[in-house]
Amino acid sequence: MYSQGLIGADGKTHEDAAFLAAFQARIDAEQKIEPNDPMPEGYRKTLVRQISQHAHSEIIGMQPEGNWISRAPTLRRKAALLAKVQDEGGHGLYLYSAAETLGVSREEMTEQLLSGAAKYSSIFNYPALTWADIGAIGWLVDGAAIMNQIVLCRCSYGPYARAMIRICKEESFHQRQGYEIMIALCNGSEEQKELAQDALNRFWWPSLMMFGPPEGESVHSNQSMIWKIKRFSNDDLRDKFINASVPQAEKLGLTIPDPDLKWNEAKQGYDHGEIDWDEFWRVVKGDGICNRERLKNRRRVDRDGAWVREAAMAHAQKRAARTASARIAAE
C-alpha cells in the first residue's frame, strides 16, 4: 500500500552537466524512464529506496490485518480479509520486481528489511486491536495510501508507474471494503458504534502522519519533485485526504478526534490541529509498540522457511543435472 513521504531523494550524482540536462529534458517532456535507459545514480538510488520501502511496507502490512483472519466475524468477512492480505503480498511481489529492474535483488532488499537498515511505513507499527480496526485500516490507511499512490501512477519511472496502476485498482477496492466494514458497525448496536469510534480515534492521527512531515522538514523532497518521482507535497496530499475523509466520517456518524478541525471557506478545505511529530519520529525510529515484534516475526518467518528454500534449490539442481545427463546419454 504505502509509500510515504518520508523518503528523500538522494541528489548526489557524478554525472556531468550535459548528461543531467539531457535526463532532465526527458523528465520535463514527460517521457517514461525505462530500466535500460541512462539515469543519474541519485535517481536510481532514490527509486530503489522508495520502491523497496514500499514493498517492505506491503509485506510488514500483512501482519496487523493477518492478526484478524482467524477471528473475522463472518465467513464473508474472513474471505475478504484473507484475499486482501493476499493482495498485499502480491503488491510486495510486483514492487520487488519493479525494484529489481534497477539492479537490486529481492534477497538484498529482504536482507535490508531484516537487518533494520530499510524502513517500512510506520503505520504498521500500530496494533490492530479490535475488528473495527480492520475497517479503520481499510478506510483510512488504504485511503491515505491511495492519495499517495494515484500520483505514483504518473511517476517518471515506467516499471514503478505501471505497477502502481494495478496496485491502485486493488487498493481502492480495499478502501471501499474497509469503509463498508465501518458502515456495518455504524448501522449496528451501540457497542459496535463504540468500536468504530475507538478505531477512528486511534487511527486518525497515524493516518495523517503517513504523508510524512511538512515539506520544510522533508529534506530531499524537492529533488524528487524535480525528477517527477513525486508530484505533490506531503501537506497537499494530507489536505486532500482530510477533505475526502471528513464527509465520510460524518456520513458514518463518527467524530474526527481533532477539536481544531474546521472548514476554511477561503481555502475551500479543512484546517486541522497540530500533528504530534514527536510521536511520528519516535515510532519511525523504532519505539512503537509493534516495531520489534513486526521485524522479529519477519526474521522468524525467514529463518523457519530457510530449509524449504534450500530444499527447493537442491531439488531444482538435481533435476537440471538429471536432464543434462539424460541428454548426454541420448547423444
Binding site: 509485506i59 500483512m62 511481489l93 520487488y96 516475526n297 523457519d304 530457510a306
Partner: peptide
C-alpha cells in the same frame, strides 16, 4: 491454512496457500 498468511517460506507460497484457503472458504 489461514494461519499461514504472512508466514510462508516464500512470498509466492504465501499467495498460493492463501489461494487454497480461499477456495476452501468458498
Amino acid at each position: 491454512l489461514g494461519e499461514w498468511c504472512g508466514e510462508a517460506p516464500t512470498l509466492e507460497e504465501d499467495l498460493a496457500l492463501a489461494n487454497i484457503a480461499l477456495d476452501l472458504i468458498g
